[in-house]
């Protein structure tokens, strides 16, 4: 498998606090990597460093064999797209205006958005099932619809790698299921490489090829989704005991909440 991401000895401090300590791993082309871990473990910082949303930190990150620092902002945006954590901020744009902004790396100043760009935006909205919403203002959408639009906006960048920060947090089961379905199809169907931070251990294991667990800024687990469903591993990561059961369709182990 071709290596698309190579993270080597990444450490990162924010205001004197160590967020990431010596994190190393690789991501292969077409891989779906889930990153889990307790609050404050450094998941968001990791994904921001990977997408150079946040600068600073020591260690090296290489994308397709080339150091991250050598990429210009536009070049990077053609390789890697990023879907941020939903923060409830609303923008004064319509869905299609917002999605079209994702074409930025392909535009030069003063050039109008062309028919090719419009087509790409339409296609991206179709992919996430939001084709009929293109003229709606963003601030009239529900949280789930909004998240789909954000994924479409990342898709129009036509980057092979997609980084997502908690794409399903705050969503109802239906929208959450929709989002996971979209990501699954993008990955297994279109061959996109996906790195997704999540709090949902079951989603991480059910959809990912591989799971990385962070604890206090270090990699506590890096391996198969099956291997994470182990009470010793999970209690080491989260500092809490877990109950397991079998998935009724696949027979894979999943965690269930305890009854009180």
């Amino acid at each position: 498998m071709k290596i698309v991401y190579e993270v080597n000895g990444l450490s990162c401090d924010i205001d004197g606090r160590k967020i990431l300590r010596d994190v190393s791993f690789t991501v292969g082309e077409g891989e779906y990597l889930s990153v889990i871990g307790p609050n404050g473990a450094g998941k968001t910082t990791l994904i921001k460093c990977m997408g150079r949303i946040m600068r600073g930190g020591t260690g090296t990150i290489k994308i397709l064999g080339r150091p991250l620092a050598e990429y210009s902002s536009r070049e990077l945006a053609k390789r890697v797209s990023y879907v941020p954590q939903a923060d409830g901020r609303l923008f004064p744009f319509t869905v299609s205006e917002f999605v079209l902004m994702g074409r930025y790396p392909y535009l030069s100043p003063f050039t109008a958005v062309g028919p090719g760009d419009r087509k790409a935006a339409e296609k991206a909205l179709e992919t996430v099932g939001m084709g009929e919403f293109s003229h709606r203002p963003l601030n009239t959408l529900s949280g789930g619809e909004r998240q789909k639009v954000f994924i479409a906006a990342a898709l129009v960048q036509e980057a092979g790698i997609m980084l997502l920060d908690e794409p399903t947090t705050f969503l109802d089961p239906r929208h959450s299921g929709d989002i996971m379905g979209i990501l699954y199809r993008l990955n297994r169907g279109s061959g996109a490489t996906i790195v997704s931070v999540t709090h949902d251990i079951n989603n991480a294991a059910l959809y990912g090829h591989r799971v990385i667990a962070l604890r206090e800024g270090s990699v506590a687990y890096d391996g198969s989704p099956g291997g994470i469903m182990d009470s010793e591993v999970l209690s080491r990561v989260f500092g809490k005991e877990f109950l397991f059961t079998e998935h009724p369709q696949t027979g894979k182990r999943i965690v269930v909440p305890e009854a009180i």
């Binding site: 921001k48 902002s73 945006a77 053609k78 990023y82 941020p84 923008f91 744009f93 902004m101 930025y104």
Partner: peptide, 23 residues
């Protein structure tokens, strides 16, 4: 006038702008 695309993206937040390729 030269930076109108960038202004649009900055309106959506700096992180978003950065991830879309804005320096």
């Amino acid at each position: 006038l030269y930076l109108t695309h960038e202004l649009n993206l900055l309106t959506t937040g700096e992180e978003m702008a950065a991830s879309r390729g804005v320096d």
